[in-house]
Write a protein that binds this DNA or RNA. Structure first.
Lengths: 333, 333
DNA sequence: TCTCTAAATGTAAGCGCTTACAAAAAAGTT
DNA sequence: AACTTTTTTGTAAGCGCTTACATTTAGAGA
């Protein structure tokens, strides 16, 4: 594969000149410009990005750590990031953290050692302190879906509490007084925030929170079906169930259908996230929109702005969820 | 950030020795090993992967080009690839091709210039010749979901024709004689292969192929709903519709529901791909399984074997789809 | 104790670029 | 034409590693 040296010899100029035409950062006369470009074409020259990085101390890459690569959520996020980066000739190196502390740390170490110019992290298992340290010491970092006050500017997050509030309210506004809740794993920040918002709405509508109507799920479909089964078994009556994410809502709906409970006539259900699935299932799921793609885009933009000095960009840190009304809720009679 | 030089000074040894303990590829005495490791720990040393790549001419990275980052399909594929690579300390650099020739080529160029040790490509718009050339000249390449005879060994593909055959057969075996077909974009190889298999099954069951019962969709949900509407409007009777992918099947199901056609009583539907969605919708979609995660894994394994010389791995090139029977097909009365 | 061989370590030349700085060429001035 | 100033080009020193080869050290045999 041709190197810059080959090009310089063929064009009859120095290495520096070739480098200049590549980087367009210094004046080169028309004549030499053409000579060099011709030589490049003739050799099919491709700059060696690795060598460029080493010499310039910039890799033009951003490292991305997600929990999982599959699933609708991360795909959208990656898609948003990629779209924004592509426009500026930066690219993505990805690693998966699998929501495990060691794997997440390993992934971060790995991305740093690849000399990424910045990192976008969607981490769940690692502690706040670890992240605060990271932000202080190393490469620029953006956190998605996590809010840590000490480094608020580095966080792109959703107001999960508001989301939980909106979800509960959507149901309460339809006259429901007995509402069950299937939560996410409580150790996850977003899960506890959503629940907090839920309780707030309850209070606002003068409905007292009943722990017996709460089930801690796993954010997976099975959590929803298990949850509904459990809640039903408890004999505490309820007319609506709000789920902390769409997967669990779907699981609950499946369980309901299998037990002749029709949605929304017998039971109202609302989800959270508005993953693509939500509009495919029947009845179409009313849910809270999580603009993850937009947030991914914003994370990328943060980096473009702060690391790559594209000053003209606007960055928004906290996003607001909103209600997507579809067909899985009905008014209580 | 500490360099190998800092470590060597602190440990009181030469650069080469430090490099040797990093790479474990030459004997180092117990005593110096410890000195070096201590120095590394003390400095929090992290090897610079970029410099390593430049010096060793290996980047330990594999470039992955997919059409889109979102959607259930690519997520699974990436997940399979990542899982397999992680075990061998290789990592993924990703780019999206968006099914456009220029973007795909650009993405490939980009990955090559990053000096990926090998590439995994899921490309649709680029020509066979281009790919054959690529395989001849450049870095090792694996193609996913594409079969080109001239470079068969580099292809990890699904037997789409067999899949089309199985789908049609599933319906024909239930006694359906009038079966409609909603295909993918015909220029896509997989779409035409699936249709070929479909026709083969028809012939085997002595059902003549009726072009009027075929609609060319776009592999998206809207293609399914538009397709079913169109087919219905044509007044050619049919009792089953086989769709070239699950998204379209889902679209068709939604359209059917909105027009009081109940599935599978009034109309049998079968999809293709077995994306996660298929088990969430109602009724659960009978479909053809596309083991994309496994195929992603296999692509990664191909590279581990051929590029990174892990000789003990088994690679399988052609995968076989299989029927996943669920609830969207019923026997014709 | 003195060789001889094998093991451990060191030396130095790259890998393909970027970029200060120096030198040469071109363009103005008088 | 001689001298400045400005523009364009070249020189060479890295960037942080790997690795062939040379050198030193340690262990074995006599």
């Amino acid at each position: 594969m041709a190197t810059i040296y080959d090009v310089s010899v063929l064009a009859g100029v120095s290495l520096a000149t070739v480098s200049r035409v590549m980087n367009k950062n210094a004046k080169v006369s028309e004549k030499t410009l053409k000579k060099v470009q011709d030589a490049m074409d003739q050799l099919g020259y491709r700059p060696n990005a690795i060598a460029q990085s080493l010499a310039s101390n910039r890799s033009n890459s951003v490292g991305i750590l997600v929990s999982e690569l599959h699933g609708p959520f991360y795909g959208s996020m990656l898609s948003g990031i990629e779209a924004e980066l592509r426009g500026s000739q930066k690219h993505a190196i990805i690693a998966a953290g699998h929501s495990e502390e060691d794997t997440e740390k390993e992934g971060i170490e790995f991305l740093i050692s690849r000399r990424c110019d910045a990192l976008i992290l969607h981490v769940e298992a690692v502690s706040d302190e670890y992240l605060v340290d990271l932000v202080k010491n190393e490469v620029p970092i953006v956190l998605i879906n996590r809010f840590i006050p000490a480094i608020a500017d580095n966080c792109i997050s959703l107001d999960n509490e508001l989301g939980g509030y909106l979800a509960a309210k959507a149901v309460l506004a339809q006259g429901h007084k007995q509402v069950a809740y299937i939560s996410g794993p409580n150790w996850k920040m977003d899960a506890s925030d959503r629940l907090k918002g839920h309780k707030k709405a309850l209070k606002e509508f003068n409905v007292s929170y009943n722990p017996k109507l709460t089930y801690e799920g796993d954010y997976q479909e099975v959590g929803g079906s298990d949850g509904l089964r459990q809640l039903l078994k408890d004999k505490q009556p309820f007319t609506a169930v709000v789920c902390a994410n769409d997967e669990m809502a779907s699981g609950a709906m499946t369980y309901a259908r299998e037990h002749q409970i029709s949605i929304p006539q017998d039971l109202s259900i609302i989800g959270f996230d508005n993953i693509i699935l939500a509009q495919y299932i029947y009845p179409k799921l009313t849910t809270i929109d999580y603009p993850i793609k937009l947030m991914g885009q914003m994370a990328a933009r943060w980096i473009l702005k702060n690391t790559f000095k594209q000053a003209d960009l606007e960055v928004k840190n906290v996003f607001e969820p909103k209600l997507i009304a579809r067909d899985s809720i009905s008014a209580v009679s």
